[in-house]
């Protein structure tokens, strides 16, 4: 498999409001393959949002390299091309919707890059269908639920026909229903449209859906692996201020008390099965 994103020794230093230099990213190296679903977890201030913003050149490395679809993000000429390849969905659904009608908002991206009107129409219809919002095409965004708004935001990114979507805590402001809407939509896009997904979240049950989890702390990648591998490290996750899925926690506790359980239990079914054995 070919790598869509290649990050080498990425550093990002910025000056905060008090004039101190802060190293938000400190030597991050990471490859993301085409079609992969990667979740990034970490406490506040661990550098995960900063990392995300490097992927479509909203931030540029102060040291190291970030290569997206073969293009260096530091090269100015690649800027708009990179942003077409990598779309970005942010935390607050209200602050990323530009237009007062859903379909007009979805059209915003393709309009910016000069797509012909007929094709914009097709792209908008396809994007809305992909996130299940076709019925709301003519609605006003401020009257939609949080989950619906966030799906509109995803459609707005999809209309640019990107290879990769980066979602920066897209569910942090949503209720449980909205959260499952978003996770479901993102999974579907990854499976059916082969879109590469980088998904930043605080919610472990969402991270569990990914192919690979990156755990960050202090601007570095602390651990990475499959959900089974990561959630086996209960102590390390707690030390990072993160939670573990309930079943993984229970498996860990029971193992501590002498119950023989294999590694890699992360959901209720697996735990129950092992306990019934």
């Amino acid at each position: 498999m070919q790598n869509l994103i290649e990050i080498k020794n990425l550093e990002h230093v910025y000056t905060d409001t008090d004039g101190n230099e802060v190293k938000a990213l400190d030597g991050v190296s990471l490859d993301i393959a085409r079609g992969e679903f990667v979740a990034v977890i970490g406490a506040n201030g661990s550098g995960k949002s900063t990392l995300a913003r490097h992927l479509n050149a909203l931030l540029l490395p102060t040291a190291g390299k970030c290569i997206v679809a073969g293009m260096d993000t530091a090269d100015d000429d690649n800027l708009w091309n990179i942003r077409q390849h990598v779309g970005m969905v942010f935390q607050n659904p209200d602050n990323q919707i530009v237009a007062a009608v859903v379909e007009e908002d979805v059209a915003f991206g393709p309009e910016n890059i000069g797509v012909p009107p007929q094709e914009i129409r097709t792209r908008v219809d396809n994007a809305l269908a992909a996130v299940g919002m076709t019925d709301y095409a003519k609605h006003a965004p401020h009257l939609l639920s949080g989950g619906q708004k966030q799906r509109v935001a995803i459609a707005g990114v999809l209309a640019l026909e990107p290879d990769c979507i980066v979602l920066d805590e897209p569910t942090a402001m949503l209720d449980p229903r909205g959260r499952s809407e978003i996770v479901g939509t993102v999974k579907k896009l990854n499976r059916e449209k082969k879109i590469t997904v980088v998904y930043i979240t605080h919610y472990m049950e969402e991270a569990m859906q990914a192919d690979r989890i990156i755990a960050m702390e202090g601007g570095r990648i602390k651990m990475q692996g499959t959900p089974k591998e990561i959630f086996a490290c209960v102590e390390e996750l707690h030390a990072m201020g993160l939670e573990t899925p309930l079943a993984a926690q229970a498996a860990y506790d029971l193992r501590q008390k002498g119950v023989k359980l294999p590694q890699g239990i992360i959901d209720d079914e697996e735990l129950t099965e092992e306990l019934c054995r």
Binding site: L58, N95, Q96, A107, P110, N112, I113, P117, I120, V157
Partner: peptide, 27 residues
């Protein structure tokens, strides 16, 4: 101001760079 800031970043991420070369869905 916070909203304006976030919106500006979101618009840039969606390739907004002013009126030059823009097309419209509804002509």
């Amino acid at each position: 101001f916070r909203r304006a800031d976030e919106l500006a970043i979101a618009m840039e991420a969606r390739c907004y760079r002013g009126g030059e070369g823009r097309t419209r869905m509804h002509e």
